[in-house]
């Protein structure tokens, strides 16, 4: 496990992904700083508040990165788990070591989850840092109208990052399963990202309303509840339950597939 994390986070590609994520808030902050001010009510939510309070850079960036950037990076990491090892040929040596197939699968998923935790944190921290550097930092007005001080706002930020990490857990399980199907990591990565996009589109179609509560992306944007006083835990709970369901289903599929698979690469 330790070795798996070392490989994942020792890898330049992982750092490139995290840097790309960190670039989002930086881009937003710099753009806002250089422009003469954002007319309120336009652009992503919170954007107009940035000039008054730098912490909103982090909130804006997290909101912006949820639909595509976070699923993209998670898709890359999760899709690479097994297929990446298979394409390098190292999978056979891990299995002959012997790592044990179930254990390998669990370790790989745990590493993907670790990335799910680190990725939103990166956005949040980079956003807070650049926001504090370019704009004043002050009390934050919540969606419920209450005002909280910056230290508590930081806690809320971590809560949102946690919410996102949970949100991405189901997608990681899908990526893990897809990764056991192929020896071409790019295929598994792309399929994972496509599925996340399709799920979000389906979530927008009113004709598919019966399906919405079952889509893993259904609660992705529900983290606004973390910005209320008191915190509304309903969506956090439903989201966690839904993601757990996805983990169970796709984890079982990955298990069934990987434990019977012939490793021929």
């Amino acid at each position: 496990m330790q070795s798996e994390l070392k490989v994942l986070f020792g890898r330049r590609r992982t750092w490139a992904l995290l840097l790309a994520l960190a670039a989002i808030p930086i881009l937003i902050a710099v753009a806002v700083r250089l422009s003469s001010g954002v007319p309120s009510g336009r652009g992503p939510a919170f954007l107009d508040r940035i000039t008054q309070n730098g912490l909103f850079v982090a909130f804006t960036a997290m909101l912006v990165s949820v639909p595509l950037f976070l699923p993209l990076t998670v898709g890359v990491v999760a899709g690479d788990t097994i297929a990446g090892e298979a394409s390098m040929g190292t999978l056979r040596y891990l299995l002959v070591a012997p790592a044990g197939r179930v254990r390998l699968l669990l370790v790989k998923y745990a590493a993907a989850l670790a990335f799910c935790v680190v990725a939103p944190l990166t956005v949040a921290l980079a956003g807070a840092a650049i926001g504090a550097a370019l704009f004043p930092v002050g009390p934050v007005t919540l969606l419920s109208g209450d005002v909280i001080q910056p230290p508590e706002a930081a806690v809320r930020m971590l809560l949102i990052a946690a919410y996102m990490a949970v949100s991405l857990a189901g997608l990681s399980a899908i990526g893990l399963f897809l990764s056991t199907l192929t020896v071409v990591p790019v295929g598994a990565m792309a399929a994972t990202v496509v599925i996340s996009v399709v799920s979000q589109i389906a979530d927008q179609l009113p004709q598919l309303e019966w399906l919405h509560p079952w889509l893993f992306s259904h609660y992705w944007l529900g983290f606004g509840d973390m910005l209320r006083q008191p915190v509304l835990w309903d969506s956090f709970g439903s989201n966690a339950l839904l993601q757990a369901g996805y983990i169970a289903v796709f984890g079982a599929l990955a298990y069934a597939r990987f434990t019977t698979k012939d490793v021929l690469s």
Binding site: V7, G10, R11, R12, M88, G89, T90, R92, Y93, V96
Partner: peptide
Amino acid sequence: GALVEGPAFYPFL
């Protein structure tokens, strides 16, 4: 100990 169908390693390590 095994060497199966050629060596395979993480090129970045």
